[in-house]
């Protein structure tokens, strides 16, 4: 669902949610939210869904993508019913992929601290951020 509808369903007042709709831009391209990044699939040629995985519709409560170490800062993907499908088993040679999703209407990534990010229709990969670890290894960012 888009934010306006989500807020309408939840009885929050119009004044409030119209403002929110206006302040969260829907971006058709590369965008980052904290330690996550949303990448157009067209930019990636080596990332594919695992052969056994299947697409699932994004449920009304959204899909929680990553939760911070403290446990209270989840990044959540929210979408209208029947507008967005996601797949959690993705083959990413770099091991950074979290989900791939495809949407036919704008969807939103929501985070308590970073706010909202609107994503235009398309096929997208959400990746985590990495950094250089000890012994020249890579580690995923834990925030």
């Amino acid at each position: 669902m888009n934010l306006a509808e989500l807020l309408d369903r939840t009885n929050v007042d119009a004044l409030d949610h119209l403002e929110r709709q206006a302040t969260i831009p829907v971006v058709d391209g590369l965008q980052a939210q904290g330690d996550l990044i949303v990448i157009p699939m067209a930019m990636l040629t080596t990332v594919t869904p695992d052969s056994w995985a299947h697409w699932q519709a994004v449920a009304a409560g959204g899909v929680e993508l990553v939760r911070g170490v403290a446990g209270n800062n989840p990044h959540t993907l929210v979408a209208d019913p029947d507008t967005c499908w996601w797949i959690g088993s993705v083959h990413d040679p770099l091991g950074l992929a979290i989900v791939m999703f495809e949407n036919i209407a704008p969807v939103y990534l929501v985070h308590p601290e970073h706010g909202g990010s609107g994503v235009a229709p398309g096929r997208w990969l959400v990746r985590r951020q990495q950094e250089r670890g000890p012994h020249r290894r890579r580690v995923l960012i834990a925030d």
Partner: peptide
């Protein structure tokens, strides 16, 4: 760009960061 597995040229296309 590397931190997200992208090249610098790709990362330079970042439209928005929150």
């Amino acid at each position: 760009g590397w931190s997200y597995g992208l090249t610098g040229v790709q990362y330079a296309q970042l439209r928005r960061r929150t």
